[in-house]
């Protein structure tokens, strides 16, 4: 067994520097790498490019990095829940590249699986396709979208083992599995880190080969963005 286990978030984030490009899993605040984000805030690395579906809320998730002006550029599909984000974007402090959600997913996956680019119909005929190569297949038009290049991927999984094998829970899965192995170094935080052999190989969502470092997160707040309930009858 090749062990990927590291003892602390601080060891897990060794090597992060200013000007790097990071991928961060999560949809809204669901399945975000809370512990790694907290460590990035602590280390105060600057001028980051962050690839993440959303940009958190004002006081949680990537919003924490925005508050401290650590992010130079965001690559996201939807950024609607964050006033500070909007302020920095409109004032020109923050560079923002908005791309279709499926394209964001596939540019991660392409990087993960060794494809330089993929054709997608999403965005054809819109400003998203401006300056990009397009091509017709069977009478339909497609846009060529390139794989991301990133220095670190920060991923959150539910359970993992020392070998780096991962299992995700519910919709906290989202972009996390497809960011594993899509950057030079993949750092995974899990709620429960088990010895190798404790997870059933049949149930593994992502094999440890895609993971360089795994650690058990100290705490997971798991904040809910839109708490919606129905009344008991």
């Amino acid at each position: 067994m090749i062990s990927k286990k590291v003892d602390s978030v601080s060891k897990a984030l060794e090597g992060v520097k200013d000007n790097m490009t990071f991928m961060l899993g999560g949809f809204g605040l669901c399945g975000i790498p809370e512990n790694s984000i907290a460590e990035l805030v602590k280390r105060n690395v600057k001028r980051l490019t962050c690839i993440s579906n959303n940009a958190g809320v004002d006081d949680f998730g990537l919003g924490l990095l925005l508050q401290k002006h650590q992010i130079k550029k965001m690559v996201s599909s939807y950024v609607g829940e964050n006033d500070e984000f909007e302020r920095q974007m409109l004032s020109g402090e923050l560079e923002v590249e908005l791309i279709p959600q499926g394209t964001l997913a596939e540019r991660c996956r392409a990087a993960q699986v060794g494809l330089p680019a993929v054709y997608t119909p999403a965005g054809f005929g819109t400003e998203v396709a401006e300056g990009k190569e397009t091509r017709e297949f069977d009478g339909k038009m497609y846009v060529l979208e390139h794989a991301f290049k990133a220095d670190f991927a920060f991923v959150k999984a539910w359970k993992g083992d020392e070998a780096g094998n991962l299992i995700f829970k519910g919709t906290a899965r989202n972009f996390n599995p497809i960011m594993c192995g899509a950057a030079k170094v993949t750092v995974v935080e899990v709620e429960e880190l088990l010895p190798a052999g404790e997870l059933d190989p049949n149930q593994i969502h992502i094999p440890g080969i895609f993971v360089q470092r795994i650690f058990q997160g100290e705490k997971f707040e798991k904040r809910i963005e839109q708490r919606t309930v129905r009344n008991k009858k």
Binding site: F27, L29, E81, A172, I224, Q226, R227, N231, K232
Partner: peptide
């Protein structure tokens, strides 16, 4: 979900539980 049964790990695209 019923009140008290919300799961932060199970949401829809509108980020609702």
């Amino acid at each position: 979900p019923f009140e008290g049964e919300e799961d932060a790990d199970i949401i829809n695209a509108g980020k609702q539980t």
